[in-house]
Design a protein around this nucleic acid. Sequence first.
DNA 1: TCTTGACCTGGAGTCCACTCCAGGGTTTAG
DNA 2: CTAAACCCTGGAGTGGACTCCAGGTCAAGA
Lengths: 145, 145
Amino acid sequence: MRETQSSSIADVAELTGLSQDTLRWYEREGILPRVGRSASGHRRYSERERELVLMLAALRDTGMTTEMMKEFVALLGEGAASHGRRVALLERARERLAEKRAEIERASTALESKIGHYQELIAAGLDCDGAPVTEEVRTLQTARE
Amino acid sequence: MRETQSSSIADVAELTGLSQDTLRWYEREGILPRVGRSASGHRRYSERERELVLMLAALRDTGMTTEMMKEFVALLGEGAASHGRRVALLERARERLAEKRAEIERASTALESKIGHYQELIAAGLDCDGAPVTEEVRTLQTARE
DNA sequence: TCTTGACCTGGAGTCCACTCCAGGGTTTAG
DNA sequence: CTAAACCCTGGAGTGGACTCCAGGTCAAGA
């Protein structure tokens, strides 16, 4: 029964896009359960551990906090019985995301209107008080640096 | 020539939604130019200054960094000639926003598929390895705490 | 043997945008 | 006259998620 190939921290960093430091930090913080070590004390990630790190990287990219990631990993340890709670946790992440999206949409609207405002002023050749600007200023307006 | 009513920091905090501490901090950091003081040394915001703070609050809400806000205020000081550069700055903010939006959309897709995955497993009564779960586990799965 | 390179640990530093605090002055109401 | 509000300043602390560092171990190659 040959065990699946284990990988070094460098491999896993490359695989997951997390830095080696981040990987070590996740372990120290208890987000990632302690990974196996080789005789010389180097981390050796098993297939299972690689998958777990990949999942954490994905969850992180959903904007989940490390605290939530920690909870999620704890639920993984409880097996199928925790499926409902996993969904609940993911739904919390979904809500956070929805809020962020709403903020972005609001910000976007505000920004577009500000951009539009200045573009109109430029096009109309007016300053902020509605007075016409000089030819010299018009030249400067379109120079962008 | 009666000058427009000036307001206290408390008023401006209330008006803009920024905290008094934030207002003072913006000034210290040079984001907001030094505000006038009363005889006793208290800040007194003029109409112009109130407007400026309102604009900064709006820009902040677009996710602009304080560094960019600083630049923007500097451009305001240059009058109409800086309109083009103002637009350029706002467009940088727009790009940042677009990136954030893209990230959120990616994250959202990933999250939905994870949620769907677990919901399917629950509905099908299977564990992560495709084996059927016991009745007891099914009960636990739907209990969400 | 010596060097190089990968890795280890615990701890400190970084970034951003605040937020809080100590110690002190002023203004207003009673 | 005193207490309560309100404000001032400079400096330190916060939180989240890393990132960097010093000092050390270990294995392989020239």
